[in-house]
């Protein structure tokens, strides 16, 4: 265990620990990209990383600069068109885990990466869906990694780009959405799971040195806290060593 780590580093480590060996992971841009690469290097060498640009079974020698980096191609299992990725891998149901981020996440795990404010007249125009909307619908489970603040965790997102549990309960299931939806949300303050019945986000682990008060101040609704609240394990020496090899100039993990 080490004490000298950044918030992003802890988030990435938490997310990496959630992946099971052998799973097929659809990897998104940003922190998810680092988390999955970390997991493959130190915990789960047999996972298959799939990138929407058209790579299955990536084995990058450096941290990919983007999700279309040439290092994803060299030594990969297969390179194919984007239509193959979306139709044959994702829509066919071959993806175990979708790894996503977003500008806003709400109480029921809905993700907004489109606009802040009204769509027709936005306060902030965000990048948009990319692959996320289809991934959130078609991956068997979804892990969300994002920084938490009152603005980024509102009770209801301004725009549902990628559906979580919508209004909660059985709403997602009733639409016939194939994937089971979000399972875990990792933030810089803690880790959340979802209630099996209400589908509401519940704080299940709090990061070292973070008080519940701080979690409450940085979330837009009265969040439920698990009766078995745990304290998140700090990054291990091995995790940090590998992260600093992946991001030597700490561009992504400030």
């Amino acid at each position: 265990m080490i004490d000298n780590y950044s918030k992003s580093e802890l988030m990435v480590c938490c997310a990496a620990r959630e992946i099971k060996n052998g799973e097929v992971i659809f990897v998104g841009i940003g922190l998810p990209n680092i988390a999955v690469n970390l997991a493959k290097r130190i915990y789960v060498p047999d996972i298959k990383m799939i990138y929407e640009a058209g790579v299955f079974g990536a084995n990058p020698r450096r941290l990919p600069l983007s999700i279309g980096d040439p290092c994803l191609v060299t030594d990969s299992t297969s390179v194919c068109s984007m239509s193959d990725i979306f139709m044959f891998y994702l829509q066919r149901g071959l993806i175990d885990v979708g790894f996503l981020g977003g500008a806003q996440i709400d109480r029921f795990g809905n993700i907004n990466s489109t606009v802040i404010g009204n769509y027709a007249n936005p306060k902030v125009r965000l990048p948009g869906s990319g692959g996320a909307c289809a991934i959130s619908i078609l991956a068997k489970r979804v892990i969300i990694v994002t920084k938490q603040s009152k603005r980024s965790f509102p009770e209801r997102v301004d725009f549902i780009t990628s559906p979580g549990f919508l209004g909660g309960g059985e709403e997602r299931e009733s639409l016939g959405i194939p994937g089971k939806g979000p399972e875990i949300v990792v933030t810089d303050l803690g880790v959340y799971n979802f209630d099996k019945v209400t589908k509401e986000m519940i704080l299940t682990s709090i990061h070292p040195g973070i008080e519940i008060k701080r979690v409450r101040e940085n979330i837009g609704w009265k969040v439920k806290i698990s009766d078995n609240l745990k304290t998140t394990q700090k990054p291990t020496e091995n995790e940090i060593k590998m992260l600093r090899e992946l991001d030597p100039n700490r561009i992504y993990l400030k």
Binding site: Q91, Y119, C133, I137, L138, P163, L166, L175, G176
Partner: peptide, 13 residues
């Protein structure tokens, strides 16, 4: 046809 967009706000706009 595609299995995307269910539950998303994109089709509304």
């Amino acid at each position: 046809i595609l299995k995307s967009y269910s539950g998303s706000d994109l089709p509304k706009w």
